[in-house]
Nucleic acid binder design. Sequence first.
DNA 1: CGCATAGTTGGATGCTTGTCAAACAATGGA
DNA 2: TCCATTGTTTGACAAGCATCCAACTATGCG
Lengths: 102, 102
Amino acid sequence: MLFHPATEDIQLTEVLRALSDPIRLEIVALLTTAGELTCGDASVRLSVHKSTASHHFRILREAGVVRTTPRGRLKLLSVRHDDLDARFPGLLGSVVSATHAA
Amino acid sequence: MLFHPATEDIQLTEVLRALSDPIRLEIVALLTTAGELTCGDASVRLSVHKSTASHHFRILREAGVVRTTPRGRLKLLSVRHDDLDARFPGLLGSVVSATHAA
DNA sequence: CGCATAGTTGGATGCTTGTCAAACAATGGA
DNA sequence: TCCATTGTTTGACAAGCATCCAACTATGCG
């Protein structure tokens, strides 16, 4: 478990689909400014049930947008900026900028 | 009918959602290289029924990604490059580049 | 005026999705 | 070892979506 796609296996449509949900976009924005957050810390800032948040974390992870790193009994979330930029240059940056413009 | 959102009303999540479908991404790619296409010309290059293609044209149009211009009994499709770039700078460009990298 | 052409719309269907609640698993601390 | 904390999974449900076919609308041509 805790599947993460390899950088070269990241699919464009899956990334776009993952980013097409307001809550997931908010998660990416949170992580981009915070750098790293635990699932719990990210979850309390969202307006959905924790199981729903967990679901969104999984969508983002399996699309290759975020990385989930177990740390003790916590799990740290971070955006895979470098991998995404290597695969689809500029894409994530423009989406994050667009988030602020929205 | 033939609703087109104003540039400032284009929503990021709707654009991303519109672009998260392989067929719609293909439509955008076709239009980007061709400049303009009729619905029919675009439709025959896709592997779906013409009513399905029409459905996708509508999703793209209502999201603000494409413009539909009636021309006689035809309808011309084109990508709203300028509007999108004004609203979300660089976004569409990086998506189109990513399409080629995929 | 009719008729062919170009697209859209409605119905039907099966699949996917977002959401919550409750139960479950895993981990470190007391 | 036991327990509280953290996060995931399962089930259920409503909503949305992609797809096709058939019927419909609209427009220009003869």
